[in-house]
């Protein structure tokens, strides 16, 4: 086991005007590890995720990523082409709303194949075979390969988005409320799927969720955020079964009551 984490977030701060959305957030993520960030809406968890992905400029702190040579490199120090190459090969981002992560007018096959083509694959038959295999893997009928995602149900769209992200075998996946906005029965199926894929592929993942059940099912470790701060972190079972911070206690209690 390497002594260097895959991702290290140090002292990250993001402000919107006078409001501090994320304050001095620090955490590490190790290869193959799944980390959940929980908190109620407005706690800063999605902002933290977007800042880690580089979609929002940080007002302080750094995000470091382990390159293939084993060094931890600050992302803001990498050249734009290198960063974009990493973003479309080694990382993936799963949006809460699949419309933000899919090309709605492009067929399912084209959506899954895009990252392969961006990475230089130029054999149509192989791209299609790979896309077919991935559709099967996320439980979408391969006969739908030429249909555009707007003809898919919400759950199918979300599974397609996951296939599109995973097709290049990324090392790190960031997910923003991947089951939000779906029916409860659909949620359960999607969670099962994600759990299986993460384990099979040995993915490292950060999952933002307001749903403690999602954290319990998927995550090894979790962070609890309140008002832009990480107020508690630890092994998932430990935090959920024996929360230390009063806010974590409240969060866990409210779920139990409901």
């Amino acid at each position: 086991m390497s002594a260097v984490p895959l991702l290290a977030v140090r002292d990250l701060t993001v402000r919107f005007g006078r409001r501090v959305a994320v304050q001095h957030a620090s955490f590490e993520l190790w290869p193959g590890e799944v980390l959940a960030i929980v908190g109620e809406s407005g706690s800063g968890k999605t902002t933290l995720l977007r800042a880690v992905h580089g979609d929002l400029p940080a007002d302080g702190g750094r995000v470091l990523y382990r390159l293939h040579d084993g060094t931890l490199a600050p992302l803001d120090g990498l050249a734009e082409p290198v960063r974009r190459h990493l973003a479309r090969t080694e990382w993936g981002f799963v949006h809460q709303n699949p419309r933000d992560g899919l090309r709605m007018a492009v067929s399912a096959g084209g959506n899954v194949g895009e990252r392969l083509m961006a990475a230089g694959m130029r054999h149509w038959g192989r791209i299609r075979a790979e896309a077919t295999q991935w559709l099967r893997r996320v439980e979408i009928d391969p006969a739908r390969i030429d249909d555009p995602p707007r003809t898919f149900s919400g759950g199918m769209q979300q599974r397609l988005q996951i296939a599109r992200v995973l097709v290049t075998r990324p090392r790190l996946v960031l997910m923003d409320e991947p089951t939000g906005g779906l029916d409860v029965s659909v949620q359960a199926r999607l969670l099962d799927l994600i759990r299986g894929l993460v384990a099979d592929l040995g993915l490292a993942a950060v999952i933002v969720t307001h749903d403690l059940a999602v954290a319990r099912l998927l995550a090894h470790r979790m962070l609890v955020m309140q008002g832009g701060r990480i107020v508690e972190s630890g092994l998932t079972d430990q935090v959920l079964d024996d929360p230390q911070h009063p806010y974590s206690q409240l969060l866990v209690a409210s779920v139990l009551q409901a």
């Binding site: 734009e80 082409p81 974009r84 479309r88 090309r103 492009v106 067929s107 096959g109 084209g110 194949g113 895009e114 990252r115 083509m117 961006a118 990475a119 130029r122 149509w124 791209i127 299609r128 390969i145 030429d146």
Partner: peptide
């Protein structure tokens, strides 16, 4: 950045359709 994946998506779609 020589990011031409999108162009190939268009060609991919043509062949699929």
């Amino acid at each position: 950045l020589a990011e031409y994946g999108l162009m190939h998506v268009k060609l991919y779609e043509d062949i699929a359709r």
